[in-house]
Design a protein around this nucleic acid. Structure first.
Length: 635
DNA sequence: GTTACTACTTAGCAACGCATGG
DNA sequence: CCATGCGTTGCTAAGTAGTAAC
């Protein structure tokens, strides 16, 4: 047993404290079932009170958020379960299913080969999926059309099947127009109607959006089952256009505790299975029909179960910080190894560390888009340049990574790495694996030996977080005002996003919005010039008159100039930020790679309100960090 | 080692909805 | 008050990585 139980009052391997303050507070009361019952009881009482509240006007509404505030639970101050056990009590209402198909009104026609054709309900439903995507580029792609048509035909009656033999003879335009009109009508709805829909959504959220896990009510992330539709893979996906079938209660596995109130399936239906597995975190699962993979309903990032894991992730990355030098020396040694396997492993690890590449699991050919990560790189994905633009030993990377996002980079590497790469590529075809003696499993096993809990992806987390910390130190100018400091923060964030290759398509309205901002800046500049002129004349005036009143005018004009200068500066900062962000997505790194305590500490140090860095959702996810981190926190 | 299966994190895009300014 | 632009949220695909069975 190299993993001791975690409940104790000293830090475990990950630096977790049972009770996190170092002065040894008494252990918290263990989670007891009595507590749980109490909470549920309170909860149902609260509901009753609330429903009464409905008739009570405005004044009472304001109390609600306060009440919730008081109830906020600091799970990070509690002891953790022994490893493997995820919860003791879990109760939920099951999933919300997609609304049933509503057949089209009679007057909406489908045409085949120029003639009106009435489709059976099943065939019609699938046809509407295609019609709704008609404007999308997808529907012009050969593979998409082929896959769609094949799956569509499976839903047709035998008559339909014999009539409809070619997709190009199908005319969905009338259906498409109908849907466009529908969505237009939705936008035009009256306030009352919109309000009604909103209330219905809130009701659904209230009823199905939460569960009770152990003693606490927790938000569920995705309580709605994915509706049927056409599969939209990313990049060049061989399965694009296939029919994603409707999920029924009979497909659903429910996971909850034995002593909980088991959710009821919709009338006339039953669940595939109800199980009670507290070694996993999911509440509901089903098998999807495109890849045959399992989908899950799990908790929100603000939940204890996700938060603890997230915290732990950063603690592992911090442990890597302590031994990364040793590991780097090690892999540099391994570049010289007699064993090919060891050399490949060492070069791959160098890429993962230096370039923050993903591990690169192997994928089943023909089942997914052709994308790669480090271990699955092929010879065709790199070019070796003994010299390029005045630099020696340059490796040019060009491949599609996760989500078919292109990774393109020219990197000078150490001579040994370069020589090794030449060796690995000898006598190989472009489509051969660069690291033919390596896969992620071998690599991760090796990493596990170097440090407990170390895997390839820890390097991404570590390098991302350490880069943010470094960049913040470097870029923050103490004399800057708040907007300028925030620009520095965003620039530090951006450095990480570039490292991790988090790209986005430039927003469709980018050019336009940039122009708008520029014209705002121009207007502000003019305003500033005016204000300065006025100040000047006021000064001149004051010189002649030498009275109190004109002095005051000068003062107020001065202030006006200052104010406008500040506004202009803010706009210019905004423009810079936006321009630099054109093709970079900051969100992913902020949410998944940057230890939030670094950002919290930075905010505290420079007096930046946390709201400027994290929006509401992000503050909920990182509540633990916001509560814990002091200004001197170091990653 | 290889494969199948499972559980969980990470990812970009599009729809939504709210604030803002004319 | 309405339109518009933009940040936020929802959605779900696509990764990583562990385990078990052969």
């Amino acid at each position: 047993e190299d993993d001791p139980p975690r409940i104790k009052d000293e830090p475990d391997d990950d630096g977790f404290y049972a009770s996190p303050k170092e002065d040894s507070k008494p252990l918290k009361r263990p989670r007891e079932d009595d507590d749980r019952l109490l909470l549920i009881l309170q909860d149902s009482k609260a509901k009753k009170v609330k429903s009464k509240d409905k008739k009570v006007p405005e004044a009472d509404k304001k109390k609600k958020p306060k009440k919730e505030e008081e109830q906020k639970w600091k799970w990070w101050e509690e002891e953790r379960y022994p490893e493997g056990i995820k919860w003791k009590f879990l109760e939920h209402k099951g999933p919300v299913f997609a609304p049933p198909y509503e057949p089209l009104p009679e007057n909406v026609k489908f045409y085949y080969d120029g003639k009106v054709m009435k489709l059976s309900t099943k065939a019609e439903e699938v046809a509407t999926f295609f019609a709704k995507m008609l404007d999308h580029e997808y529907t012009t792609k050969e593979i998409f059309r082929k896959n769609f048509f094949k799956d569509w035909r499976k839903e047709m009656t035998s008559e339909e099947k014999s009539t409809i033999t070619s997709l190009s003879k199908c005319d969905f335009t009338h259906m498409s127009q109908y849907f466009k009109a529908q969505s237009e009508a939705r936008k035009q709805m009256s306030k009352e109607e919109k309000q009604k829909i909103k209330e219905e959504n809130e009701r659904l959220l209230k009823e199905y959006g939460y569960c009770v896990m152990d003693n606490h009510k927790e938000r569920i992330a995705n309580f709605k089952i994915e509706p049927p539709g056409l599969f939209r893979g990313r990049g060049n996906h061989p399965k694009m256009g296939m029919l994603k079938r409707r999920i029924m209660p009979e497909d659903i596995i429910i996971n909850c505790s034995k002593d909980s109130k088991i959710p009821a399936p919709p009338p006339g239906h039953k669940w595939k299975e109800v199980r009670h597995d507290n070694k996993v975190t999911w509440l509901v699962s089903w098998t999807e029909n495109i890849q045959g993979s399992i989908k899950y309903i799990m908790l929100n990032p603000s939940s204890r179960i996700k938060g603890e894991k997230d915290w732990q992730k950063y603690e592992t990355a911090r442990r890597l910080k302590k031994c990364v030098d040793k590991i780097r020396n090690q892999y540099r040694e391994d570049w010289k190894s007699k064993e090919m396997k060891v050399r490949q492993r060492a070069v791959a690890l160098y890429f993962i560390d230096k370039l923050a590449l993903r591990a690169g699991n192997e994928k089943e050919e023909g089942e997914t888009a052709d994308t790669v990560g480090c271990c699955s790189l092929r010879v065709e994905h790199i070019k070796l340049h003994p010299e390029l633009d005045g630099q020696e030993y340059v490796v040019e990377f060009d491949f599609l990574g996760k989500d078919s996002i292109r990774y393109y980079n020219k990197v000078p590497v150490e001579k040994r790495v370069f020589k090794n790469l030449q060796l690995f590529m000898e006598n190989k075809q472009p489509e051969d694996d660069l690291f033919d003696r390596l896969n992620t499993s071998i690599l991760n096993k090796h990493l596990q030996d170097l440090m407990e809990g170390l895997t390839a992806k820890v390097f991404r987390t570590y390098n991302a977080s350490i880069t943010l910390q470094q960049q913040l130190k470097e870029l923050t100018n103490p004399d800057d005002n708040i907007p300028a400091k925030i620009l520095s923060y965003n620039r530090a964030n951006r450095a990480v996003a570039i490292l991790c290759n988090h790209q986005r398509a430039p927003p469709k309205t980018f050019e336009k919005s940039m122009m708008n901002l520029q014209s705002k800046i121009d207007a502000k500049k003019e305003q500033l010039a005016d204000a300065r002129r006025e100040l000047k004349s006021a000064k001149a005036d004051a010189k002649v008159r030498r009275d109190e009143k004109s002095k005051k005018t000068v003062e107020s004009k001065k202030k006006a100039v200052q104010r406008i200068e500040e506004q202009l500066m803010k706009l210019e900062v905004q423009a810079t930020d936006r321009e630099e962000n054109k093709q970079i997505a900051l969100g992913t790194s902020k949410l998944n790679y940057l230890d939030p305590r670094i950002s919290v500490a930075w905010c505290k140090k420079w007096g930046i309100p946390i709201e400027k860095i994290y929006n509401k959702t992000q503050r909920e996810k990182f509540a633990w960090a916001i509560d814990m981190a002091e200004e001197d926190y170091e990653f």
